[in-house]
């Protein structure tokens, strides 16, 4: 079995490196690459950078305004880079982290602020470019929260607890809910940005962040207490309870179901739109398949398309996180292959 674990081994190394880089980036690079201090009220793009530092307009809510003890704290720290990569890099990382925030945070914030499109465009272009390059590779190999989840799965395997395999219907329901979460987030964010409704901003600002488990988990890396409860009013209390519920779901999903959580993650959802057209492709040579089902069995997202495939073509699924586990476990030489813009990078080999 010696050469068979190469892909997983490299994946673990990259995941660990990314976890350290993305979460502790704030500690590692602060002072060398740091941007300017947050200066609320000035128009973005004044720094002369290619990627403008997006800021709240006068009078609007911003993440720099939260005090210790409130639910959206700590978020004030300046990140090293003002960019939004297609993976879950949290605004709530200790010391700001390497990148600014995830794409859902980006949308929520800027929909509320009604930031001009010309400031958003550079960020969006970079995001789309990265997505088209690698698809959901970002989820499988880079996302720090996914890496933590993999750690939970590893713990389960160590304890000899078998994985729960959820039916496709359940997983589809999660994806459906993910659309709901993203839609609600964008809807609320736009609504509270309207001039007459800005009074709601103090409680409804960044609605998805308020329940996202990354917000609760990330600060812990910097030994900072996350804003884990706020019962001052009905809205905050609801968000607090929801956040707890979602955190429980998150832990349970990763513990029992490997990457089941990733079906629900709205950042993963946005990435998944690019998966089918991404430069990174999975191919199957159907005639070589012996239908052993190892690929479907090993898929952390529970996808079976690769197993079912009967024709030679590209099989990039929306749910696929490009962990290449299927390719690694495939016992038939040359049956599954991974290509980058048509060029064969890896293929299954026993």
């Amino acid at each position: 079995m010696k050469p068979r674990r190469r892909i997983t081994l490299s994946r673990r190394i990259i995941q660990l490196a990314c976890l350290i880089l993305l979460v502790y980036g704030g500690y590692l690079f602060k002072g060398r690459l740091a941007g300017q201090e947050a200066n609320v009220g000035e128009p973005p793009g004044t720094g002369g950078s290619l990627f403008p530092d997006l800021k709240a307009p006068k009078g609007a809510m911003s993440t720099t305004q939260f005090a210790p003890g409130s639910i959206l704290w700590p978020s004030g720290a300046t990140p090293v880079l003002e960019n939004y990569p297609p993976t879950l890099v949290c605004r709530f990382n200790p010391k700001g982290g390497l990148f600014k925030a995830c794409i859902v945070h980006f949308f929520s914030e800027n929909f509320t602020w009604q930031t001009h499109l010309k400031y958003l465009l550079p960020h969006l272009t970079l995001f789309v470019l990265l997505c088209f390059l690698l698809g959901r590779f970002w989820c499988g190999w880079v996302c720090p929260i996914g890496s933590l989840g993999d750690l939970l799965s590893w713990l389960r395997r160590r304890m000899n607890v078998p994985v729960r395999r959820f039916p496709a219907g359940f997983r589809n329901a999660l994806v459906f809910s993910s659309y709901g979460l993203l839609g609600a987030t964008l809807g609320i964010s736009t609504f509270i940005g309207l001039p007459n409704y800005s009074r709601f901003q103090c409680y409804w600002f960044l609605p998805y962040c308020q329940i996202c488990p990354a917000r609760l988990v990330c600060p812990v890396f910097g030994l900072i207490k996350p804003g884990w409860k706020d019962f001052t009013n009905g809205v905050s209390a609801t968000f607090t309870l929801l956040a707890w519920l979602v955190l429980g779901l998150f832990v349970a999903a990763f513990y029992w179901g490997r990457r089941v959580w990733c079906h629900l993650c709205p950042v993963g959802l946005v990435n998944s739109w690019f998966n089918r057209g991404a430069g990174l492709e999975l191919h199957k040579k159907a005639v070589k398949c012996n239908k052993c089902g190892y690929c479907a069995d090993a898929c952390p997202m529970g996808l079976t398309a690769m197993y079912e495939a009967d024709t030679d073509r590209k099989y990039n699924q929306n749910g696929c996180i490009m962990c290449l586990r299927c390719l690694e476990v495939c016992p038939k030489d040359g049956c599954l292959s991974c290509r980058f813009f048509g060029r064969r990078v890896l293929e299954s080999r026993y």
Binding site: R157, N160, V163, K291, C292, D297, V329, P331
Partner: peptide, 22 residues
């Protein structure tokens, strides 16, 4: 036999795939 999950159930499942699915 390609063991995906090194739990007892996981190994038995991998055996089932080797002997029966293939």
């Amino acid at each position: 036999v390609e063991i995906d999950e090194e739990t007892e159930t996981g190994i038995i499942r991998a055996l089932a795939l080797k002997y029966l699915a293939a």
